[in-house]
Design a protein around this nucleic acid. Structure first.
Lengths: 151, 151
DNA sequence: TCACGACCATCAAGTGTTTGACAGTGCTCC
DNA sequence: GGAGCACTGTCAAACACTTGATGGTCGTGA
């Protein structure tokens, strides 16, 4: 009896680490999106605001590199957040053509609320895993990212 | 001296498990996309072909549910793969309006090549981690997905 | 028998993102 | 000082996906 699944491709193709990784990330991202919606924020908005908060004065291009998206995508998000008064574009002190990104007070406010939501999800996960295994998971994930990045 | 980063949001907002998860998934996905490109396949194409291979005769709607996308997205992918002769739409034996999805020989061939690529990435990761930690990581990721899904 | 409901597939419109191309600005080396 | 270069920001077109809505097909129960 020939089992086709085990002939054509690797036998354990369905329970690979990369699949588990994808499923987990997809589920977490979906939950983030769902809980952030009442705040009028998409997960990408939160990520952008958090990045700017972490490194004020960031440029759009640099931000694009960190978030693994194109500068246009960043520009689109920035335009939306700016129109809401949550983000501010200032002229770079040296390069006149470059513009720094800064949070406004409203931006800080919505980020604070959003981060409480995200922290809640984080707590839900780490609570289910326990502190030791959480740290372990974080370490393993970092090593995976490091391993894959070298190429 | 007041450190703004530690006032506004959680202090360790940057090294959360969810961030590490996102970074790792992003890196892996980017690598998949990069190495699949020479085959003319996107990662989503590979995922779809693999799903159909795993469960032949799948319908578009069922596939959409499994991949967490809308039926339209599936239809778009299916149309492309069908135009390349890698996928086949057959009439459902009972429901005449429903169509089953099956791989063609060309589809099996390209899937075999693609899976070798993916298996290589998997090996690269598990090789860097070792068998024990790989299994550990997979278990932890599954638990995360499970924890998050319940809501 | 036949109306009702569930499900599948598809069309149309809107949104978000990428790809490709282009102009503006500051730095560096000749 | 000026040419070349690297980098930033933006525009236009193409692409992928979602939301909303429509028509087709089967099974169920009055």
């Amino acid at each position: 009896m020939i089992r086709n699944n085990e002939e054509l491709v690797e036998p354990n193709a369905l329970d690979r680490v990369t699949w588990a990784l994808r499923r987990a990330e997809l589920a977490v991202q979906a939950l983030k999106e769902q809980r952030l919606r009442p705040l009028g924020l998409a997960a990408s908005h939160y990520t952008l605001l958090m990045s700017v908060h972490s490194d004020p004065g960031l440029t759009g291009a640099e931000l694009a590199r960190r978030l693994n998206v194109t500068p246009q995508a960043v520009a689109s998000l920035v335009a939306r957040l700016e129109s809401r008064g949550q983000l501010e574009r200032r002229e770079h002190p040296r390069h006149r053509h470059v513009q720094e990104l800064h949070l406004t007070d409203a931006g800080r406010e919505v980020l604070r609320a959003a981060d409480k939501v995200i922290a809640g999800i984080e707590l839900q996960i780490t609570g289910g895993l326990g502190p030791q295994e959480s740290a372990q998971l974080r370490g393993l994930l970092d090593r995976v990212a490091e391993t894959v990045r070298e190429d």
